[in-house]
Design a protein around this nucleic acid. Structure first.
Length: 264
DNA sequence: CGGCATGTTTCGCC
DNA sequence: AGGCGAAACATGCC
């Protein structure tokens, strides 16, 4: 999926739908609960939230819709895609990739007045899904609420590589593969390091990198706007900090890009 | 054509 | 029991 930053961008763009009433929905029932249309039709959108990488749409006296994006899911609001192209997904907008279409109106249900969908979830690979009243209690501290203390608590005595821990949504919710590499680069920590071996100072640096860099990447448009942007990840040029060639290693089944000179 | 991809879940093996 | 890695999922792109 898109990472938490993309979810946050979509959450913001979905705010224009607050106050509208869902008058109809179309679903791909392979990734949407079978009773979705019945349960959601007629309910007014109350608020839009983000938890980790999940966008939540609360309805008045109805269920909370959860949008889970998988690797290639994206949101289109009133025909506008806030993120036109995901790095590793298609630039095309194929209606057949729609998994959810929500039709909404500012009045109570009157299908005759309904135009194009207010909200579309478009996902070529179909690794995403839609939930109703999902249980998100297993998620760890949200990426935007990380502090050194909370990060230290999330690490505990856990021995997996720190890169793996940052991707574990039950430890820290919202970081994905690109942001995890990015904050480790800024913190100067080798992604292979066993999480529990990080010193207090290293945990502080990591928490600080998360707090400082995420808002910057959010402003720039998402997870792909860091030092380790996609071109850099693919080519592994010299590190912009110290000139030593970047390296690629598979850690926890995911490609990690890092600098062997300043990340220790 | 082969390999890889901003992710999550499941399965089998220590 | 618990942790870890590989595989599976599904499809487009380079």
């Amino acid at each position: 999926m898109p990472e938490g930053l993309e979810a946050e961008i979509w959450r913001t763009s979905l705010e224009v739908t607050v106050g509208r009433t869902v008058v109809d929905a179309w679903v791909d029932d392979r990734v949407v609960p079978p009773d979705f249309v019945d349960r959601i039709t007629g309910h007014r959108i109350d608020s839009v939230r983000r938890v980790g990488k999940v966008v939540l749409i609360d309805t008045v006296d109805g269920p909370t819709i959860g949008l889970h994006f998988g690797m290639t899911g994206r949101v289109i609001v009133d025909g506008i895609a806030p993120i036109d192209r995901l790095q590793y997904a298609s630039a095309r907008d194929e209606p057949e990739w729609d998994r959810l279409r929500l039709f909404a109106s500012r009045r109570a249900a009157s299908p005759a007045l309904v135009g194009p969908p207010a909200i579309r979830l478009n996902d070529p690979r179909r690794l995403g899904h839609v939930s109703l009243d999902a249980d998100l209690s297993a998620l760890g501290v949200d990426m935007m609420a990380v502090t050194s203390g909370r990060l230290r608590a999330a690490i505990g005595r856990r021995q997996p590589a720190i890169k793996t821990l940052l991707l574990d949504q039950s430890a820290v919710a919202g970081l994905g593969n690109m942001c995890a590499d990015e904050v480790l680069w800024w913190a100067g920590i080798d992604p292979h390091r066993a999480a529990a071996t990080l010193t207090d100072d290293e945990v502080r640096r990591l928490a600080s990198a998360i707090r400082r860099r995420l808002p910057i990447m959010l402003r720039r448009g998402g997870s792909h706007t860091g030092v380790l942007e996609p071109d850099v990840r693919a080519a592994c040029p010299p590190c912009e900090r110290d000139g030593v060639p970047l390296r690629r290693d598979v850690i926890g089944g995911r490609t990690a890009v890092w600098c062997p000179e300043h990340q220790r």
